[in-house]
Write a protein that binds this DNA or RNA. Structure first.
Length: 500
RNA sequence: GUCCCCAUAGUCUAGAGGUUAGGACGCGGCCCUUUCAAGGCUGAGACUCGAGUUCAAUUCUCGAUGGGGGCACCA
């Protein structure tokens, strides 16, 4: 390890999917490491056996990979300070506990969870403030304690917090100088009765052993920090720099949760947001480059990110802005990348994977007509389905009524006139010549362009709203276009299917 | 209850002891236009409140209010 090199970590607990708040924490850690030439470490905090699963670990790792984050040490890549899963580091916590035992800085506590819960409840009901553990077991005679341990009585190990400890102070890289009164710190549990370390204990051990220099994490840990500092002090370890990040809230200013809709990276991926969008959006939710920049590349982020421009204010997750941003990225991604990324949704629209692979060029021609009217990839089936109908047309009843059956619209005439032009094989099957030839009908027929083209649009695309008409026609085979027109004419004007 | 944090338009944010308080999303209007978009122009919209410091406070201090988080053998 190089002296003074920044070492940061993202330490998720695998109890669920990767939440966007966690994702932002990961991005900030990653960007900070990249901006400072430091190391970014991924550590899995799986000490809670009831909620942690290997499957969740994989989900989180996959989500981080999808976002395009890479770590220098951690699962899948290894590193000099492994293992990078807490359940595999039990011996290190045990060693730390032994050290504290030897120095008399911890004591065994035989109070059961039930007793503690009862005391807490009683205090609350009596209207008194609960001030933490009452230190009942702190004064048990050591010999007596040992006898009870030897007898197999369940016990936890608590930190013997120095009585009348001075206020605990530290400088947070985001919040500035922090000061917590020492007397509110109770003797927190370091090791549970099953021998496993608690979060606060494991984090301190790991961050020290992994030589973490900056702990960048959620604001919900701010109040834990003084407790952890107590542990650092007891262990005689150097205290890292802390940087706490504000929370991400839902539109109702409550902690972002399922009832607000999508909350996990995975869900946003499935809705058709690009990784670049997510990184950009999350990066700027609580950090700014200059107040002007709204679109920022990974490269720039990795170059310019700094902790001193992180805001302290909680941020509301605004999916409308995310939609806009994703649209911007779609417009910039280019045809080839678009086709590759759009594959699953194109298949939903009616394409087949084989066809996409074999006729990639054709699919790339869709991009120019759709890229500026797409914000999410999951809009593809609805917006591009008509390209995959073959000779059939799925007529939208409302569009038929508004455009084809509108009184005095002369839609039947318009359709037939356009059909004649489109059937003329002397006209090249290209957007411009076809469009020009159809447009030439306007004057002799005394029809405004809209009156001529909208009926055709419905007949070909099935809907009065669609991507550009003649660009679409060019993408379709002539026989299919004519078949659709014929079908529309028959159903609407001959069979009167939509009259009722 | 207690400890801690936060406070610029609906949202994300920039900002300085004296600014016409800047940008972006969204919203309104106009232009463009065969639909929808995109694009261009344009409009409305903010410093939570109350004291104090100061020639001057939205910016500094204190208080109030509002919002958030912690106080577990969860992380």
């Amino acid at each position: 390890m190089t002296d003074n090199q920044v070492r940061v970590r993202f330490a998720p607990s695998p109890t669920g999917k990767l939440h966007v708040g966690g994702a932002r924490t990961a991005i900030y850690n990653w960007a900070y490491a990249r901006a400072t030439g430091g190391k970014f470490i991924l550590r899995i905090e799986d000490t809670d056996p009831t909620r942690s699963t290997e499957e969740n670990t994989q989900i989180i790792v996959r989500a981080l990979r999808w976002l395009g984050l890479d770590w220098d040490e951690g699962p899948e890549v290894g590193g000099p300070y492994g293992p990078y899963k807490q359940t595999e580091r039990m011996d290190t916590y045990k060693a730390a506990l032994e050290k504290l035992k030897a120095e008399g800085k911890v004591y065994p506590c035989f109070c059961t969870k039930e007793e503690l819960d009862a005391k807490r409840k009683a205090a609350e009901e009596a209207g008194k403030k609960y001030t933490g553990y009452d230190r009942t077991c702190r004064n048990i005679d050591p010999a007596e304690a040992q006898r009870r341990i030897d007898a197999g009585e369940p016990h936890v190990w608590r930190l013997k917090v120095p009585l009348d400890h001075a206020p605990i102070e530290f400088d947070d890289a985001v919040y500035g100088h922090m000061k917590f009164p020492g007397e509110v710190m109770d003797d927190l549990i370091l090791v549970r009765s099953d021998g496993s370390p608690t979060y606060n204990f494991a984090v301190v051990c790991d961050d020290t052993n992994m030589h973490i220099t900056h702990v960048i994490r959620g604001d919900d840990h701010l109040s834990n920090t003084p407790r952890q500092i107590l542990i650092y002090e007891a262990l005689g370890y150097p205290v890292p720099t802390f940087a706490h990040l504000s929370m991400i809230l839902g539109p109702d200013k409550k902690k972002l949760s399922k009832r607000h809709g999508a909350t996990s990276v995975e869900e946003f991926r499935d809705q058709g947001y690009l990784p670049d969008t997510m990184v950009n959006f999350l990066a700027l939710l609580g950090w700014s480059l200059d107040g002007e920049t709204t679109l920022i590349s990974r490269e720039q982020l990795c170059k310019e990110f700094s902790l001193d421009r992180v805001t302290k204010k909680d941020a509301i997750f605004d999916q409308t802005k995310l939609d806009w941003m994703n649209g911007e990225y779609i417009q910039r991604m280019g045809a080839a990348a678009w086709v590759d990324y759009a594959k699953p949704w194109l298949v939903q629209a009616g394409a087949t994977e084989n066809d996409i692979d074999e006729r990639h060029d054709w699919y790339e021609k869709i991009y120019p007509i759709i890229c500026e009217r797409l914000q999410r990839f999951d809009e593809i089936p609805a917006k591009l389905g008509y390209l995959f109908w073959g000779p059939e047309v799925h007529l939208d009843p409302a569009s038929v009524k508004k455009v084809l059956l509108k009184a005095n619209a002369r839609a039947d005439e318009a359709i037939q006139a356009c059909r004649k032009v489109l059937a003329d094989e002397s006209i090249e099957w290209k957007c411009d010549p076809l469009q020009d030839a159809c447009r030439a009908l306007c004057e002799p027929m005394d029809l405004k362009p809209g009156k001529l083209f909208q009926p055709l649009r419905v007949a070909v695309c099935g809907n009065r709203v669609s991507p550009p008409l003649f660009e679409s026609i060019e993408l379709l085979p002539r026989k299919d276009v004519l078949a659709r027109i014929d079908e529309t004419y028959r159903r609407v004007f001959t069979d009167h299917e939509f009259d009722a």
